[in-house]
Design a protein around this nucleic acid. Structure first.
Lengths: 115, 115
DNA sequence: GCAATACTAAACTATTTGGTTATTTAACCT
DNA sequence: AGGTTAAATAACCAAATAGTTTAGTATTGC
């Protein structure tokens, strides 16, 4: 895996099965068997996906008898969100226009209007 | 690559070189050679990274003489942000408590307090 | 036309990923 | 103790990824 943390998180999220697992865990803690149920793949395959999510810090696993309940850990998602923040201005049209306006003002453009 | 769009976007972002390229493009359009300059890898390697970013819709490429200037396309980043929104409540502690409070209210708990 | 510049494409390699089946480990229940 | 259930591990495989070097394609400018 890539050495840096953010890459590990994003790589973990770049798989529809793993995102579906997170979506399920958003509804609450559950067992590996129940997590595996919706998917057309073997338990070990799901187990591997869980390991990827765990290494990325996106889930934590407990112990209850023979079950190993998984729960969502959203901290890493916040890191992704923080990274995205650097780009938010590029897709927020109105903010874009505000920026243009502010730049125009700074340049002393008398015709600048906040549209 | 994975068939779904979001997976492609996240996979493209799950590489430090590619994120560095996006960071550079946030400062403005530039050529492949200039994009490749900071990295300790061959031009073809960078060219491949650009292809990954292009397929994910994260960059667009133009043509100016023998240069193929790249520019950032932030649309896909918004899709990531929209996906993240489903989990925002899990890392925003105060919002968590607000939710608990609202749920308690809905259940008619008279002792519910917004803490 | 031709050399130089800026890339892209092809072919190859090593590593990682995502899956499989078969085997173990661990805890529970008679 | 022995059987059942829950899950992880091992060993294996095919396909994808990230890099390399070499070769090809446009476009400029003399």
């Amino acid at each position: 895996m890539t050495p840096d943390r953010l890459s590990g998180i994003l790589a973990a999220l770049a798989d529809p099965t793993r995102r579906a697992i997170l979506a399920r865990l958003a509804e609450g803690e559950t067992s590996v068997t129940e997590l595996a149920e919706p998917f057309d793949m073997s338990m070990p395959a799901v187990s591997k996906h869980l390991k990827v999510l765990e290494r990325a810090g996106l889930i934590a696993r407990g112990r209850a008898a023979q079950w190993r309940p998984c729960r969502l850990e959203a901290g890493p998602l916040r890191e992704v969100s923080d990274w995205l923040d650097h780009y938010r201005r590029f897709w927020d049209e109105s903010l874009d226009r505000l920026e243009d306006y502010l730049q125009a003002l700074q340049k002393g453009d008398p015709d600048a209007t906040p549209n």
